[in-house]
Design a binder for these strands. Structure first.
Length: 979
RNA sequence: GGGUGCUUAGCUCAGCGGUAGAGCGUCGCCCUUACAAGGCGGUGGUCGUAGGUUCGAUCCCUACAGCACCCACCA
């Protein structure tokens, strides 16, 4: 093995070997366990959020696979309608062309070409994270198989009356030229104005004043509304107003939507460009007047002078004209929420257009069939309410159910070219025909088509196909095997439906509505099953200061840069490349030079994954700090070196050790006990998705138990090995053999337990370890998860080792506090204590001498052969009887002391220790314990405590006070001896 | 307006009814033959505020304050 851990050297080889071995595919044996990858946008590149989420999925998949589950991690990518179309349109823009220059067919072909060339960026990056996903089943939402599912779902829902086409007010993105769903609109606070405009009453000197943030929409006003109980305006209801700047007259209507106390209490009503106004217009049967084109320019319904103006130019003109007419009463600054398109940042314009909708709100259809609420929404709601689907952390269930309780119909048509084209045709009379293709649509027609049929130009919302992911990827609705474009079988519903429901969905809270809810709806409806049993909502990754990562802030991190490391200059270059504004570029560059003066060090995949695991508590954000990742790289190095230590001490065994060790030495029995506890905890934490605790448990075991203690404690055993083999007694070689076996077993077990988090380093080390244990598997990936119940715990051995650790810690503390060099050998004596202390001191003497650098006891017969030990079972190595013990009532040298139970561990002061400093140290220790004793006495002196607290708590408290008293007595005695 | 979180050591976070923990940082001593990406030891917290429940509250309840995020919004 190399001297230190070099991730780059070992990561490159293992992934390909694993994948080639078929280890990523379902074994076909055991209980099905499926994880669905939220298909990333095919346009995407891996960011920290992906890396985190995928690490979580990979840990689960690897863990369950080792546990013997028939594990499928289903992967694929999403066609991402708008995002992908935009990329290719941007390419065309460079050539000074638009998609319309190419025409639909050629454009779509070009997008496909782009997808073939660039669409696997993100999946290749996933491989660098170590994702053990089944790539042989990789799917794309526009695969033929998945497209067939989309068509069937659309047609079935249409025929069930659950999809309808309607002329409705929708969120229109005038830049992208398409409708978007409610979810794709963000409300952004902007500084604007509130304008008050006077509308004269026809045939009167009176007038009303309305307030608006969008004065240009007055051109489309159809009424002014007041509250029905507003006495100020009661006499005007039913009267007519002169709509300024136009030749139209509009009524005053009464509607209790109006808030009497807001503004003037009068609201202008523009049903064609405002959702609330639309509802009011419907209630009062007022025909909406659309005044904008789809590009948000004023149309021919407005007076001529405004036509063709962009909505913001129109606003200026309208205001100027109102001002000139003396009808602009007031202008004041006003903060308002502006609806902005998620994809283009364009301000959304509500527009009346023909669109397709999924009914999610009606209870019963006019013909008596169940409406969308009954058929789709409520089953999705019940799946979570009933607990059939569980959210982790569970409070997200509230978010889910509240959204479904207030859901609107889902606008599924998009005026794009890239996507699943809607399987609907229109005849020349405007009748609708839906089917797999034109022939099928005709065959299923209920009316005779008039003239030729023309297919709907629109495509479906990207999320429509994502909603089907849990069953479309399993081969639904085909009867037999589904093949990809290369002719390989990727799914077969008859076999693969065992993976439905999947075990857990790992995803971000931001797509609970977009995706999670819709998968439940569609999967429930079409398969009768839930799509997944649990939904683990992962945290959002922020920077070290808790700020959102964004390119314009310059605080993003590329997971691959963390893995590979990157020099400062290339980092600056790549971080500023896509930034357009010079001042932003400058700011970002400055920040990067400040944050990473030396670039980013290479952390390696394993350390990055360990960091993600360690951060994955139930908190909803995690702050990623490179410092932390560097700490976990150190952990990897620690593990690496522990393995080197083990392997170099064991050397080439003639015969490999096999099976689970049954050692007799306490130190070995103790570490096995600790391994058992560690495994039990790790399993619990996996079950509850507490990856932070999984990581912490493994970290602490590996570092604080295995490395800090076990490896140190067995050094005295192995020290015997370096001696001439002839001088070893039988017991020595037995002790060495069982220790080697235990060490190998423990190391191999911890490698298995760590493998889900750090697959690369564990595999690499395992390859060195496996031959020495005669393991038949060729890869750690094939090893079973270590079972805690195979290991026997030994509490007695644990008590022995705890005693020993206390003695050693006591000596170390004295050394440190008294400034005795760790290299200096010191004398050691024991006093007081009981019989078991004597026995233990005797037994552990050689280990104490070795590990605490203690002067060996002069043994009268040191030249003679070592006598057989009187203790059974043998300890580290057999020990001659020692003469460290100070008998009662004998003179003892002035010493520094540590107390273990009732025993005093003494280091004689002569020449080593400052008497005054030792007195101070003792006094401090005594007063600390006295405080504890006071606390205990306070509790036990309280009759209510003794009467009401659980008996075991009272017992525990009594035990504590006894222990403290023992310790403090010994300390006081020591203090007194020092004078 | 409705909802959901968070507030614990200098920083980032666990803990959650019965002795306040980790990592990083910091301080001291050590290049001790697995590891200086290391070892050993130390420092550091009246657990946001105020009440309540309880024998006992960082933990449960109530109110308040501050900070986030989500949803819906008054023209």
């Amino acid at each position: 093995m190399e001297k230190s851990f070099e991730p780059a050297q070992i990561e490159s080889k293992w992934y390909e070997r694993w994948e080639a071995s078929g280890a990523f595919q379902p074994s076909g044996k055991g209980e099905p366990y499926c994880i669905l990858l939220p298909p990333p946008n095919v346009t995407g590149t891996l960011h920290m959020g992906h890396a985190f989420q995928q690490t979580v999925m990979d840990m689960l998949a690897r863990y369950q696979r080792m546990r013997g589950m028939n594990t499928l991690w289903q992967v694929g990518t999403d066609h991402a309608g708008i995002a992908t179309q935009k990329i290719v349109e941007n390419q065309l823009a460079v050539e000074d062309r638009t998609r319309h220059d190419l025409g639909r067919e050629a454009f779509v072909e070009r997008v496909w070409k782009w997808k073939e060339e660039s669409g696997s960026t993100i999946t290749n990056q996933m491989r660098r994270i170590g994702a053990a996903a089944d790539w042989s089943r990789e799917r794309f939402t526009m695969d033929e198989g998945l497209s067939a599912a989309v068509r069937k779902v659309f047609i079935d829902w249409y025929r069930a009356g659950l999809i309808y086409r309607g002329n409705r007010l929708v969120n229109w993105d005038p830049v992208l030229g398409t409708a978007v769903s409610d979810l794709e609109v963000n409300n952004v606070e902007r500084d604007g104005h509130m304008w008050s405009i006077r509308y004269p009453v026809v045939g009167s000197d009176e007038s009303v004043v309305v307030a608006t943030t969008r004065p240009e929409t007055m051109l489309g006003d159809v009424a002014v509304a007041v509250h029905p109980e507003d006495e100020r305006y009661a006499h005007l209801v039913g009267k007519t107003l002169k709509l300024p700047l136009t030749d139209r007259e509009i009524p005053v209507i009464a509607d209790d939507y109006v808030d009497k106390d807001f503004g003037t209490g009068c609201v202008k009503i523009t049903p064609a460009h405002d959702f609330n106004d639309y509802a009011i217009g419907q209630r009062h049967k007022l025909a909406p007047i659309t005044i904008f084109t789809l590009a948000a320019k004023v149309n021919d319904n407005a007076p001529e002078k405004y036509r063709g103006l962009d909505r913001y130019d129109a606003r200026k003109r309208v205001l100027a004209d109102l001002e000139a007419a003396g009808l602009l009463v007031e202008t004041k600054p006003h903060k308002l929420q502006v609806p902005v398109s998620d994809r283009s940042d364009a301000v959304i314009e509500p527009m009346l257009t023909d669109q397709w909708f999924v009914d999610l709100t009606s209870d019963v259809q006019t013909d008596g069939r169940p409406g969308g609420r009954q058929a789709i929404t409520l089953p999705a709601l019940d799946a979570v309410r009933s607990g059939e689907i569980k959210f982790v952390p569970e409070n997200w269930a509230t978010t889910y159910t509240q959204w479904l309780d207030n859901i609107q119909d889902w606008c599924i048509s998009r005026q794009l070219w890239w996507g699943h084209r809607i399987p609907a045709w229109y005849d020349e009379a405007g009748n609708i025909f839906v089917g797999e293709d034109e022939a099928d649509a005709r065959a299923n027609a209920t009316t005779t088509p008039v003239g030729t049929l023309r297919q709907d130009d629109d495509v479906l919302d990207t999320w429509f196909s994502s909603a089907l992911w849990p069953f479309s990827t399993m081969g639904w609705p085909a009867n037999g095997p589904v093949k990809n474009e290369r002719g390989e079988v990727v799914a077969n519903w008859e076999q693969d439906k065992i993976f439905l429901p999947s075990a857990v969905l790992v995803t971000g809270f931001d797509i609970i509505f977009f995706w999670v809810a819709r998968m439940v709806m569609a999967t429930k409806y079409f398969t009768g099953q839930i799509p997944f049993r649990e939904v683990y909502i992962n945290a959002i990754v922020r920077d070290a200061e808790g700020q959102k990562m964004s390119k314009s802030k310059g605080n993003t991190l590329d997971p691959l840069d963390l893995i590979d490391g990157i020099e400062l200059e290339p980092l600056v270059a790549k971080s500023t490349r896509s930034l357009l504004l010079p001042q932003v570029r400058e700011k970002v560059e400055k920040r990067i030079r400040k944050d990473y003066p030396n670039g980013i060090p290479s952390i390696g995949t394993d350390a990055l994954r360990f960091t993600f695991a360690a951060l994955a508590s139930y908190s909803r954000t995690i702050n990623f700090d490179i410092k932390r990742a560097e700490g976990y790289k150190a952990f990897c190095n620690k593990l690496w070196n522990a393995a080197r230590f083990a392997l170099s001490n064991i050397g080439d065994r003639a015969e490999p050790a096999q099976g689970i060790p049954q050692p007799t030495l306490e130190v070995n029995r103790w570490i096995l006990t600790r391994v058992k506890q560690m495994l039990i905890e790790v399993e619990q934490h996996f079950t509850s998705y507490r990856f932070d605790h999984v990581a912490q448990t493994l970290y602490e075991f590996t570092w604080n138990e295995l490395c800090d203690w076990y490896l140190e404690l067995i050094k005295p055993v192995f020290r015997g090995k370096s001696d001439d083999a002839d001088t070893l007694t039988t017991i020595d070689s037995k002790a060495i053999a069982e220790t080697e076996h235990t060490l190998l077993y423990v190391l191999e077990t911890v490698l298995r337990a760590l493998h889900p988090i750090t697959p690369f380093i564990t595999e690499e080390i395992w390859q060195w370890v496996a031959p020495k244990l005669a393991l038949s598997e060729s890869s750690l990936m094939q090893r079973p998860w270590p079972r805690a119940d195979e290991i026997v715990a030994d509490d007695a051995a644990t008590a022995e080792i705890e005693w020993f650790k206390n003695v050693l810690s006591g000596i170390r503390r004295i050394r440190s506090e008294m400034n005795i060099s760790p290299a200096k050998t010191i004398p050691l004596l024991f006093a007081d204590g009981d019989a078991s202390d004597r026995q233990r001191a005797n037994k552990f003497n050689p280990a104490i001498e070795f590990l605490a650098r203690v002067t060996p006891t002069p043994t009268p017969h040191s030249t003679q052969a070592i006598s057989p030990p009187s203790i059974d079972p043998p300890s580290f190595i057999p020990s001659p009887s020692v003469s460290r013990w100070i008998e009662p009532n004998t003179q003892e040298p002035a010493s520094a002391a540590a107390v273990v139970g009732s025993m005093r561990v003494l280091i004689p002061l002569a020449g080593l220790i400052d008497l005054g400093a030792e007195k101070t140290r003792l006094a401090k220790e005594i007063s600390r314990i006295e405080v504890e004793i006071k606390k205990c006495e306070g509790k036990l002196g309280n009759a209510n405590f003794v009467a009401n607290a659980p008996p075991e708590v009272v017992t525990q408290e009594r035990q504590r006070i006894t222990d403290w008293n023992t310790t403090v007595t010994a300390l006081r005695e020591q203090a007194q001896k020092l004078g």
